[in-house]
């Protein structure tokens, strides 16, 4: 990784944080409705893992799937930030044409296969995407990002078992922020180290610091190489922390200011900025310029696009309920 890449990575993480901060403001202005779950604090995980995956190349991308906290994963996979923002605004130009919203960002052109609200639901979907890759003989893999809480769903165990028996090319990324909404992991989960839970399925697994992007990248590279080489599934756990509430309506009464401050000392952007400054790759003054550029881009391009885009037409209410374009390979009257 050269200096330009390192600078770009730092810029990306700062961008994600400002992007999420700006969605928070838009939510307060009631431009965004529904549930909004922000990724603030966890940036190094998605950024680092997906930096090591195949992204931004359209149909050749690895498949990526996650839960409702999905904006950053979508963008890092290749979705256009303005389309993600337009989706949050419920606009026709949004990634899901305004039909999905914050929790359901999809970008099929980049193999970003969606954000899902049902905790644990993406596990089998990811394994299925991996089955598709394996069956078609491509060297793509499927990457599934989920929280620590999701591991208590039945789908976790069912899917780990099948992924292993069928040797599927899937990487499960557990973003362990220690909370499922307001419940601390030690109140809900018998085994605190999540990576240990898949030993029951004899699956390759490891645990790492999720606040340091260099560590995330190094560990992810190994895991991704393992999966891509056909050795089977891998479960990787990153210890991380979400700074904001679970969603917008969360007073965080379940944790202490001290705990928050402790984690923020190891802020992923701070760690990486200091490292790049120390290595002489970037100067403190450059950061200010970078932030200014990012804010301008968010305001003048992304927000503007979302604000000015049209809403879906009411006449199109039932469009997309069923597929309007039957399979082209079909000959003859399929439906009628």
């Amino acid at each position: 990784m050269n200096d330009a890449d390192k600078k770009r990575l730092l810029r990306e993480m700062i961008f994600y944080r400002r992007f999420e901060d700006r969605t928070f403001e838009a939510y307060m202005e009631r431009k965004i409705g529904g549930f909004l779950h922000l990724y603030t604090g966890q940036e190094a995980v998605a950024t680092g893992v997906l930096e090591m995956a195949r992204t931004g190349q359209g149909a050749d991308n690895d498949y990526v799937i996650t839960g409702y906290r999905d904006h950053v994963h979508a963008i890092k996979t290749g979705a256009a930030p303005r389309e993600v923002m337009a989706e949050l605004y419920g606009k026709e130009t949004g990634s899901s044409k305004g039909r999905g919203g914050s929790m359901h960002i999809f970008d099929a052109s980049q193999n970003f296969m969606g954000g899902y609200a049902l905790v644990g639901q993406p596990f089998p979907l990811a394994a299925g995407l991996a089955m598709g890759c394996k069956h078609k003989g491509t060297d793509q893999i499927a990457i599934c990002f989920l929280g620590d809480g999701a591991n208590n769903q039945g789908t976790f165990h069912e899917t780990m078992n099948m992924a292993k028996v069928w040797n599927l090319p899937v990487l499960f990324v557990c973003e362990n922020n220690q909370y499922a909404i307001g419940t601390h992991i030690n109140r809900s989960t018998a085994v605190l180290d999540q990576y240990k839970r898949v030993c029951a399925y004899d699956m390759e697994a490891s645990q790492h610091d999720g606040m340091d992007i260099d560590i995330v990248m190094e560990a992810s590279k190994k895991a991704i190489d393992f999966v891509r080489s056909g050795k089977g599934p891998y479960f990787i756990e990153f210890m991380t922390y979400r700074y904001r509430g679970h969603s917008m309506s969360d007073a965080k009464g379940y944790r202490t200011k001290e705990e928050e401050a402790e984690w923020q000392k190891r802020d992923p952007i701070k760690i990486y900025t200091e490292r790049l400054i120390e290595a002489g790759i970037i100067k403190a003054a450059d950061i200010k310029t970078m932030e200014k550029e990012i804010d301008d881009e968010i305001e003048n391009d992304i927000i503007k696009f979302a604000e000015e885009s049209p809403e879906p037409k009411v006449e199109d209410l039932t469009k997309y309920v069923l597929d309007d374009n039957p399979d082209p390979r079909w000959v003859g009257p399929l439906h009628k």
């Binding site: 799937i65 296969m113 979907l125 299925g128 995407l129 078609k136 039945g154 789908t155 099948m162």
Partner: peptide
């Protein structure tokens, strides 16, 4: 059932 149906659905999203 839930997860093998889910795996089928995921596979269908990948073109199967």
């Amino acid at each position: 059932e839930n997860s093998y149906t889910g795996i089928g659905i995921g596979a269908s999203m990948a073109g199967m």
